[in-house]
Nucleic acid binder design. Structure first.
Lengths: 259, 259
DNA sequence: CGGTTGTTTGAATCCGTTCAATACCTGTGG
DNA sequence: CCACAGGTATTGAACGGATTCAAACAACCG
């Protein structure tokens, strides 16, 4: 599942003006028919590796639409009825949980090719806000239909389990990070993690463009924005990374990993 | 899924000597045939609410065995091949992830009626160690068989999704706790959470027995054992809880929630 | 252009850690 | 039974990393 076949050309370092312009044309009609999954260039990221032609036909009928979300807008909010899961096709998101007292925490960042919305499955409603960090496009996968497909296609069922389980493992790592690491180690881990994910999607592992603010990074890593900024400056002094505003170049990945 | 029909008599405050003695008899043969799920007193916690007689029969054939794990022993270790998920039938566990450098972090505590092992599904091997905090018993649910059952029984499939999704949501809350709360708030939240879970399982919400050490609590909450101890003392001074070693009595739950 | 939002850096403060000393259990073996 | 050992818990004092407060600057957008 999770289709994303947009021409995600210059995602990381490209400026907003040059990012995937196609959704701008259709802004009046944000929900539209999606291209077929079987033709998707990012298929390997979103779907089980081996599928029969019949399975493909089945899946193409499932992913019925995409949706454009403009920067700062929400894809869904905490409390919204859970109906679909989403695949980021272009752009990026943050997921934010909020406490009653107004305290916020960023639980994750999602870039093109990654899934969104699995948290809502249990309670029947979403548990967090998903907010676009830039103008973005998602594939919409209606969960009721997906559930049916999973009972018919074994590898599909297995893939869903894998995705959910991977999310559990990812969150475990994040808990470890928040529970045991210093601010310096957290920021280093964050940068290396982003680098790895960009690389996995065909972008440069060494240089990329952060779509989130220092405050959002801090909120994700459990520290204040000033501390994030200080760590970036520190890494720069130590010649581990070069940070020019939101453009990051990782100079010494091994050194960063040793922090 | 997840059956647990042991006579989990005095779990929280009871002393080890009086806790569920039945597994001691069969220590030489720790894996044994389990009683049927359909007769399980904790069924509501582990299985979808409405099932037909045929579904029950199907499930009873699934949960084929239980296993005793002595205090300090591991149910599974990080790296072990994933084959089954587990339901705690009696006793309690902690799950621990370890970093290469030896740094440990406790990702969760599981008491009777709760699930264990869902993290292993994605990668095909477990991601953490599951260690018994006291002599315990688990139901073993072979995942391959469960997967088949989930394609046949719709409510069962849905229940698995719910359990995995709930784990994702639980971990989100824990990330929020680790990322945004003070030591005082973390300990208060921890005690109230335990209280709620004991209550849900029919035990006293006001008084219970901690099965974990201060160090393990600290490792779970992202602080040092000394800090945990200080917070307990602080709550005692403020007449919010009464803590006598591992026996905890929550005196003023509302006050604790306001911290 | 001015106003807003985001970033960097410094200085003072504070919360939690570290180090250390003492007390307290709990199970073991004489 | 008691003494003892080893792990566990409590508490104090000094220390340090991250936060808070503040100011200045840069980038962006209408």
């Amino acid at each position: 599942m999770l289709a994303a076949n947009a021409p995600v050309s210059g995602h990381p370092t490209a400026r907003p003006a040059t990012v995937v312009p196609f959704h701008r044309i259709e802004q009046r009609e944000p929900v539209q028919r999606a291209p077929r999954c079987s033709a998707c260039s990012m298929r390997a990221l979103c779907m089980p590796p081996e599928l029969s032609a019949a399975d493909f036909a089945r899946l193409d009928s499932l992913i019925c639409s995409t949706r454009s979300v403009k920067r700062g807008d929400t894809l869904y909010r905490a409390g919204d009825t859970f109906q679909s899961i989403y695949a980021v096709r272009a752009g990026s998101f943050k997921t934010v949980v909020m406490h009653r007292d107004g305290r916020e925490h960023v639980t994750g960042f999602q870039i093109a090719g990654e899934a969104l919305g699995l948290d809502g499955l249990g309670a029947g409603h979403h548990n967090c806000d998903a907010i676009a960090l830039e103008d973005s496009v998602v594939c919409i996968i209606p969960f009721a239909q997906l559930e049916v497909a999973c009972r018919e296609i074994k590898s599909m069922q297995h893939h869903i389990y894998q995705m959910m389980s991977s999310e559990i493992v990812r969150e475990s790592s994040q808990m470890m990070l928040l529970g045991t690491m210093t601010a310096e180690q957290r920021v280093a881990t964050f940068l290396l993690n982003l680098s790895r994910r960009f690389k996995a999607r065909g972008f440069s592992a060494a240089e990329f463009h952060l779509r989130m603010t220092r405050e959002e990074i801090g909120c994700y890593l459990g520290m204040k924005l000033e501390t994030v900024s200080r760590m970036f400056s520190k890494f720069q002094r130590e010649r581990l990374v070069h940070a020019d505003g939101k453009t990051i170049r990782i100079v010494d990945p091994e050194g960063l990993a040793r922090v």
